[in-house]
Simulated assay, not measured.
Amino acid sequence: MHVTAVTTLLIPRLTAPATPLPVLTALPTALYLDAPEGVVAIVTSPHVLPPLGLALSQPDLDLRHALCDTTVTLGNGHVCIPGLPPSALAPQTERWCPSLAAHLPPHIDLDAIRALLPAMATLTPPPDPALQPVLSRATALFEALRRGNAEAVLARAATLVGLGPGLTPAGDDLLIGLCAALTLLGHALPARQSWLLTLRQQLGRLAPQTTTLSASWLTHAAAGNLQRLLIHTAQALALADAPALAQATRHLMRYGATSGWAMLAGLSQSLAALLT
């Protein structure tokens, strides 16, 4: 068994001397480890790599072999999960960069993006009553974005941190989508880049207010590093590739109970607000 894909952010950890890391959460398709640099994710599909993650070569594995009171050892090019054979970093292992900026074209047609956004606005949120507070507070966030008031954006964002259902609360996932929008437009609009990327960086200061897993992903998003499915969606928007966007949107909507929808809402509605 080998590692099929690893993010470039995790390679230093995987190639350093072996270190045991405590298990935070063990799910059938994902294992989350507590590391000094953030939460390390071990997943069974390379398509859902988080910013600090790796995928194993056997997609039918049940990662619940690693109980939450155990450790998983990473280092010396290997992953050692209790009850499973070691997985090695191999020559064919994909090294994937989780920085959205690395996947964007040099020129982005903002009018083409505007034309694609209405279709994304029709995506229906999951039928979960616990999403209602997220939806109502998100409306105020997007209005602050329309006004270009960074202080108000941060104040509204603070009301969303840790809010809503999901292993990563939906409010946090929505803010990760906002970070993706700020990264995309920071790349497309050099004249506004400083304002956009400073705002993105400031969103990372809210991370300590939420769960350990969500805080790690929000911190990465505030630095421009994102989950792979979200990068594919933002990249398709930047390329104005409608078929690729439709496919990426379908895949992201299936990610988690509410996470995929919340990231999409954060991305699309933030872009709509900032481009008005």
Results as ranks from 00 to 15, higher is better:
P20D: 10
A119I: 12
R250L: 13
P126D: 14
L154S: 09
T210W: 05
T249Y: 07
R137K: 15
A170M: 11
A170N: 06
L206R: 07
P133C: 04
G260V: 05
T93Q: 02
L56M: 07
H78L: 14
G204R: 09
G256R: 04
A257D: 15
L84E: 03
G256H: 07
T7I: 09
H187L: 07
R114C: 01
L9H: 12
H107S: 15
P82D: 04
L154K: 15
P59A: 13
P98C: 09
A157K: 02
H65D: 15
D69P: 11
S87I: 06
P12S: 03
A41M: 11
G53S: 04
F142P: 01
S45D: 14
P82A: 09
Y32C: 08
L197N: 05
H47P: 11
T15K: 03
Q202T: 11
L14F: 04
H47V: 15
L54A: 03
G164I: 02
L141E: 09
L252E: 03
T212M: 14
S268M: 12
M253D: 12
Q227C: 13
T44K: 02
A101Q: 12
D60V: 08
T25W: 01
P12T: 14
V134K: 11
A55N: 01
L135M: 12
H107F: 11
I81Y: 02
L54R: 01
A5S: 03
C80R: 09
G162V: 00
A207D: 03
T29N: 14
A90I: 06
A88Q: 01
V23I: 13
L89K: 00
L182M: 06
P105N: 02
L267E: 03
N225D: 09
A221S: 02
L174T: 09
G148V: 10
H65L: 15
R64F: 11
A248P: 03
V72A: 06
L189M: 14
A144R: 03
P36C: 10
W217D: 07
R95A: 12
A248G: 04
Q193D: 08
H2E: 11
S87W: 00
S214V: 09
P190I: 10
G177K: 07
H232V: 11
L218T: 06
M120D: 04
Q227V: 12
Q132D: 14
L203K: 09
P12M: 13
L199P: 00
D34I: 04
G266R: 02
A215L: 08
H47E: 14
L100H: 00
T25M: 10
G166E: 01
R205D: 14
S216Y: 10
G38W: 02
G224W: 04
H232P: 07
V3R: 00
A191F: 08
L197D: 07
V6K: 00
P51M: 13
H103W: 13
A191M: 09
L89Q: 00
V23F: 06
P50V: 14
Q209R: 14
G260Y: 03
S214Y: 07
L104D: 05
